[in-house]
Amino acid sequence: MTFDNARILLKADAIEKTFRGNRVLDGISMDVHAGEVIALIGPSGAGKSTFLRCLNYLEQPTGGSLHLDGEPVFADPLKPAKSELLSLRRRVGMVFQTFNLFPHLSVVENVTMAQRLNGLRSTSEAEEYALKLLAQVGVEEKAEARPSECSGGQQQRIAIARALSQDPELMLFDEPTSALDPEVGNDVLRVMRDLADAGTTMIVVTHEMRFAERVADRVLLLDEGRILEEGPPERVFRHPEHARTSRFLHAVLDR
């Protein structure tokens, strides 16, 4: 949980997103340091997923800019070039709430495909690396199976391995355990904690307050498209500045 404070890996500057006149993100700025783990929390509809998706341009922001390692990601953030998009997405991995594994491929193919197609590794190297990643997330025995033959918890861990296969500098997680039973979810959270301990830079949208408290270096509370509260977990959770924060935390913890 230590990180290099000097190096800002990702800088999001005044990110805005409007869906047909509906302003969902109201100029969010954030610095993510290399090795840092950020928990993004907030009520439903606050814009957490939208913000996360703006960071890899699955959603194109309607304003603001991104910098990776001090360099602007796009010459013109409103007109992303194809090569800029691909390069951003290869540097940033994403894990979805619903896993989204490719059902027509075997587990190991799910993890090797992008490595091969993106020219990252040769077929044999990709396979070797995939097996190593699958072992790391504890599903190596499922390598030859279809995703549909795996439990939800296994599928999400495979999805993590798939994202890691691109050697991303930053990992984005959008409620990775929300679709899972608590026991299975814990297997996924354990893998994520290992990643955090190994120094992976991560932004995690989550309702798992316990995980946020233990693993995150910083908690950001998003509300109505803005950062309402921000700080180390113990401060945000124990001494929030805003009444809305305490109300939200009570609502979540009472569930």
Binding site: L86, R89, G93, L101, F102
Partner: peptide
């Protein structure tokens, strides 16, 4: 499912690979 294309896009696959693969 839209999530399939999104997962492919998030992996940095080109538009052609997203579609054909």
């Amino acid at each position: 499912h839209v999530g399939q294309k999104e997962a492919a896009a998030a992996l940095g696959l080109s538009t052609a690979h997203q579609f054909w693969r």
